[in-house]
């Protein structure tokens, strides 16, 4: 019998993997992939709570909003990455230190 905890465990592993990607990658697009993993793990939690919780659809509705915001986020973030690439000729985040005093 697959219970709530099984889904929460998958989601926790996915979250940690996304965190690892955000922390260790230098390439900005790869960091964005890590962010997508984190958002997916949060969504998985919401849908699991919707299934095993009081029995309404609020978790799934929340997940739809998370997907919408992820789409908006990735569009704006890629625009910023492209502008940075045009300015600095590199997609690496640790070279984006123009504002350092």
């Amino acid at each position: 019998m697959i219970a709530l905890q099984h889904y929460l465990a998958v989601s926790a592993v996915l979250f940690s993997l996304g965190m690892l990607g955000i922390l260790t990658r230098r390439n900005a697009v790869n960091v964005l992939m890590g962010v997508e993993l984190v958002l997916n793990s949060a969504n998985l939690n919401l849908v699991a709570f919707s299934r095993f919780g009081p029995g309404n659809l609020q978790g799934q509705l929340f997940a739809v909003f998370v997907i919408v915001i992820a789409a908006a986020e990735v569009a704006v973030a890629l625009a910023i990455v492209l502008t940075l690439y045009r300015l600095r000729r590199t997609p690496n985040l640790d070279e984006a230190d123009i504002l350092r005093g």
């Binding site: 929460l8 926790a12 592993v13 979250f15 940690s16 922390l23 260790t24």
Partner: peptide, 22 residues
């Protein structure tokens, strides 16, 4: 290629997160 920085601290944080959560 995509380079990797701070791999060991990243692994420590990720493993710690898994352990704390699950």
């Amino acid at each position: 290629r995509s380079e990797v920085t701070q791999f060991l601290p990243g692994i420590i944080v990720a493993t710690g997160l898994i352990l704390i959560l699950a």
